[in-house]
């Protein structure tokens, strides 16, 4: 991915999530509190730091975005109100939008379905992208 494209994606993720990674003071409380920690390759605090640095490609290609339970424990406990779960959701959305039509269609589901994929993620994808 070109640097320019990565930057554009980074801006897109920040715009969708309304998260400011610069607010993070790197305490690690999000990853300390994450119940899906063991399932993820990249952890909540890494999402915040990697988006800040523009390393969005790795995040988009990784299954970690589907492992987030959207339990929002990280949002509740973050002392700086960075809201990492919103950022992860935005990366997930960006990935889904890459499908082209900007809609998530039911017939695309079987190919994507992973028994370990939290149902919440599927539901939230439909809620936001099915017209």
């Amino acid at each position: 991915m070109s640097k320019q494209k990565a930057n554009a994606l980074r801006e897109e993720i920040l715009r969708i999530s309304n998260v400011d990674p610069l607010k993070c003071m790197r305490c690690g409380k999000c990853s300390a509190t994450c119940p899906a920690y063991d399932e993820m390759n990249y952890h909540p605090h890494e999402f915040v730091y990697m988006v800040e640095r523009g390393a969005v490609e790795e995040l988009l290609d990784d299954t970690s975005i589907y492992r987030c339970l959207s339990c929002f424990a990280c949002i509740d406990r973050c002392p700086r109100q960075v809201e990492p779960a919103k950022l992860i959701e935005a990366v997930r959305n960006t990935c889904l939008r890459k499908q082209g039509a900007n809609h998530f269609k039911a017939d695309m589901l079987p190919g994507k379905l992973d028994p370990e994929l939290p149902q919440q993620a599927v539901v939230s994808a439909f809620r936001k992208y099915a017209k």
Partner: peptide, 20 residues
Amino acid sequence: GMVGKVVPENGVLKVRAFDL
């Protein structure tokens, strides 16, 4: 790193934390 959660369980405090 920070402590994220403390769960009291059978007289023990289960502390979940992160080592940065």
